[in-house]
Design a protein around this nucleic acid. Structure first.
Lengths: 326, 326
DNA sequence: TTGAAAGCGCTAACAG
DNA sequence: CTGTTAGCGCTTTCAA
């Protein structure tokens, strides 16, 4: 079935294409009678606008690109829900790209975004990305960008993150204040800025409480994390473990139960969006890092940058909340 | 910075726009010398094609829409990884929509897909969707569709699912063969076809093994599932529970541990993509319903329908695999 | 091997 | 209130 377009409608109603266009857009110039005729005809003939033509003409796309390092089961789904909700409300359509944690792929994607004439970009950086040079093309093209969660501190591009340092400091302090003396810290990829920040908070919490820091009490995520973790918890008698993410907690949890360490012999605390800690029993304490909130703030802030291209670059640090079921 | 287009390049190289277009597309008619000149100029001036213009002209979009009921943490991420991988390899771009389990929203989204002139649609239906009439517009527009996972059986549109009935039959039979006599079945939304199919397999397994079916031994997911579940497992002494999904298992698991039922007093088995059963200890048995495989099969099959619009409609039923750690 | 010209569907001056 | 006209950036026939 041939697709009906504005010209077709115009011809059938014996009016001009521009009148049809305006009627469909509910332009105030057009008489109610004409609008009614156009709308009924459009409905009857199943007219569907061609957004490529529309946005092409208008030099905008109504598209927002979301660029993510990977499709995690934690964090990403909640964040995407928020993004989808905020953008949907404002009539934007989401296009998604995954860098698979490769800077090179990330750069390709960025160019692709320009080709799609996206109205804005939300991006969480790949593990090994350590500069934002590949984002400059977006700035040159006048496309607003907001960095989320996995970011690199900078002056040019706005960021939305949690206060990694403070949250970790508080979380580890909590363990110490409830009696832990020998604490293991479990961190994500060593290169990530969030790992570094959280590591900083970890050390600070120890030293502030007069506990000596020992580099053996740290594990970073890598290819053979599982083995390393299993070995580590057997080697020393930890009485507390800090996990910097849900993913790390979920991967480690079975081992902790297997060796009968949790819940009896040690306390755990995580930075989490609240999912996994509530999927186990006893439920774990955590500092809520709301993925939904992050997604919301990032999208809304992106839309402000789209509205006002000269809005000053700022850096949100979201608060976290201590959560316990007891 | 003004965006460079083909005309600009043509003017600067004193050749025609069509030549530039052909050179960039590596058309055989164009001399290598010209191609080289064009490519270097393009690189130098940071030329980025405008895909809206390109696809608009070509009456195709390179876009594939993925329409999902919601953004679950289980299943969806793995499925999306697969879809993203398959489509990316073939040069398609993903646009995503969420129906929030509303048929009405689903219908809106479908129209939106037409407006975006998508080349194909992958869709998993909302809970309360019970007819495929709202997909007819896609067929009329000649846009191929593949239904995935949460589908409605039909003649018009191809589907990719697991063999729900048989898998459940096998899973429940497994419980029975390992000694369970009083089995609870935990199912998703009652309206979903997959719930019905799986329920069918459940009953069949019981009766085939001479176990009387009691309607009290079934829970469907709804708003106060948690309470219902807690009450149910206290009322009767079940020795086995079948969970039709990871989500149901993960929500119920803490309660099972809390009441000291798992792992000592009862066996559990789930239809799962393998994530949650391995995040607990002892690890749970499950029938692997590979989200990745489903995503792959669905996307590849969609691409075949895009290639050959007359390819006959067929219905994949993916196999599942029994998994145990012992 | 390259150029000229038309047109994809839509909107926005401008004119009436 | 409605019509005329031009053009967004690109590809593609046709012609040279």
């Amino acid at each position: 079935m041939k697709r009906i377009n504005i010209k077709d409608l115009a011809r059938m109603l014996s009016i001009n294409a521009s009148t049809v266009s305006r009627a469909l857009a509910d332009h105030p110039d057009i008489s109610d009678a004409t609008k009614a005729r156009v709308h009924t005809a459009a409905k009857e003939l199943n007219y569907t606008p061609n957004l490529h033509a529309k946005f092409f003409r208008q030099k905008a796309s109504g598209l927002i690109a979301v660029v993510l390092p990977e499709f995690n089961m934690f964090f990403i789904p909640e964040m995407m829900k928020a993004i989808n909700h905020s953008l949907g409300k404002n009539g934007y359509t989401l296009i998604m790209f995954f860098s698979n944690n490769s800077t090179e792929k990330e750069a390709e994607i960025i160019n692709h975004c320009i080709s799609w004439v996206v109205d804005g970009v939300l991006i969480s950086m790949a593990e090994d990305t350590n500069s934002l040079n590949h984002l400059n093309v977006l700035r040159d093209a006048g496309i607003p960008v907001v960095l989320m969660d996995k970011v690199i501190e900078n002056e040019c591009f706005p960021t939305v993150t949690i206060d990694d340092f403070t949250t970790t400091f508080d979380a580890v302090s909590h363990l110490i204040h409830t009696g832990c003396k020998n604490i293991l810290g479990v961190f994500g990829h060593e290169g990530l800025q969030i790992s570094k920040q959280r590591f900083g908070g970890f050390i600070k919490a120890l030293t502030a409480n007069g506990i000596h820091f020992n580099a053996n009490n740290i594990i970073y995520k890598d290819a053979n994390f599982q083995e390393k973790f299993e070995k580590t918890i057997q080697e020393a008698l930890y009485d507390g473990i800090f996990f910097m993410s849900d993913e790390l907690l979920s991967v480690s949890y079975p081992t902790l139960v297997q060796y009968a360490l949790y819940p009896k012999k040690l306390k755990i605390i995580a930075i989490s969006d609240g999912t996994f800690p509530n999927q186990i029993y006893p439920k774990a304490d955590y500092f809520l890092h709301s993925a939904y909130e992050l997604g919301t703030v990032a999208s809304e802030s992106l839309m402000e940058y789209i509205q006002d291209k000269n809005k000053e670059v700022n850096h949100f640090k979201l608060k976290t909340y201590f959560k316990t079921k007891y």
